[in-house]
Design a protein around this nucleic acid. Structure first.
Lengths: 233, 233
DNA sequence: CCAAAAGTGTTCGAATTACACCCATGA
DNA sequence: TCATGGGTGTAATTCGAACACTTTTGG
């Protein structure tokens, strides 16, 4: 049905802020690519695309994410809608931003490189087109708020990770150091991690035990009124 | 410029979740109106409208708010974008929701009634069209999160208010009772309220002192690293 | 004088912070 | 054997929760 025929129609895009965590460099990275169309062709940009007639906003975001990363089931959350009339010099485009968390290693290199995408450290971003910097900083705030209150940080890590790695991830997200003993105490007391027998022996001689996020435990706890909260000095 | 000529164009609307606080009934109310166009003509709806070519999303939301309430400078914050293909049976419409806080008394009755709008208690809402219920519940969550961390609750009260009124407002937002002594202790210790000499003597014989939100104090404190936090048992 | 609402402090327990040394191991 | 990173516990403090009586005054 087309009952609103007189109203204006707009180009609507989605832009994806794709966060990854580099476990070696201990840095949050962003997936950027060099824009292939005019205007601002060749400039650094978030991954984005126009919303089609037959897809929802969420579906559009997934489509773009899948196309660029080759990944299927990833954490994806709407962040904010940007609607300034002149935000895109190419035309009036309303854009809804999404942020996504992916484990760096999972991304298929070939697909990524074929699409001309690159991981760039959050702390040394190049200039981005349009209002993409604003999108990033808003998404980072959302990310910081999210990981405090939901166990989504694990999305950025491999299945098996050490407590040191987990802490480094949180430090990278919050841009500050945390106390090792307090951090470990808090996360372990939650009882949502499973300690494995295996050790990670690359970064230290002694080796650090691997842990795994135990989703069933977490779901059960959550149902019985438990709230994840990882907020340490 | 029109550089993206091949992409699909969409109707984009904004819908406003307008919260008011009824200081007498101690209830949060929502400004609803009876839809005047097909489909769902005559059904209860949020205040909304299509985004024009020459206005941003924020501007569109302000325009609608102004038209419906006659008010100019109100608290308005983007909440979420809704993009399901079939969310509106009239046509494919992408809608960005905004929530707004206004002091009930400020609204100009004539304008409101001329527009056929009505305040409805949040706890006994009628059926709303489309996905407007979801918009409301998401906006309520945002409101709850906001008033915890920012002094925006005052937007829902008159300039002068008593501590009892402030507490009742918080209780209405959180849907639970709070401890009187702890509440007062916490808000007063923040040192962002100004106690007036005047008393409110309608609801009690003794009378309750009026307070005012002292914005300058708050701004100063905020600059020096203070964080508003009103989270009481 | 009494009903009704405003106003006021203290105690207890839990959570958060601060803090420094031993352990295991490969080179 | 020693350098490197992993792992651990306790004391002090702060913060949040629970809780009940006095005050004022109009009718």
């Amino acid at each position: 049905m087309k009952l609103y025929s007189k109203a204006a129609r707009h180009l609507v895009a989605v832009d994806c802020i794709i966060f990854g965590y580099d476990i070696l460099e201990k840095e949050i990275k962003l997936l950027l690519y060099k824009r292939s169309i005019k205007p601002a062709k060749g400039k650094w940009s978030l991954a984005g695309g126009f919303v089609e007639d037959d897809e929802s906003l969420d579906e559009a975001a997934y489509r773009i994410l899948r196309k660029i990363t080759g990944l299927d089931s990833v954490y994806l959350k709407q962040s904010h809608a940007y609607g300034d009339v002149k935000r895109d010099p190419g035309d009036r485009v309303i854009s809804v931003s999404y942020f996504s968390l992916i484990a760096l290693r999972n991304i298929k290199k070939e697909i990524a490189e074929k699409n001309g995408v690159h991981w760039r450290s959050l702390s040394r971003l190049p200039n981005l087109i349009f209002d993409h910097h604003e999108m990033v900083s808003r998404a980072l705030s959302s990310l910081q708020a999210q990981v405090k209150v939901n166990p989504v940080g694990f999305e950025l890590l491999p299945d098996k990770f050490t407590l040191v790695q987990l802490q480094c991830l949180y430090e990278a997200i919050y841009l500050r150091k945390m106390d090792k003993r307090n951090f470990r105490k808090k996360i372990l007391l939650m009882n949502i991690l499973e300690k494995l027998d295996e050790k990670e022996t690359v970064t230290s001689k002694k080796g650090a035990y691997y842990y795994r996020f135990h989703e069933e435990k977490y779901d059960k706890l959550k149902k019985s009124g438990f709230y994840f909260n990882l907020d340490v000095n």
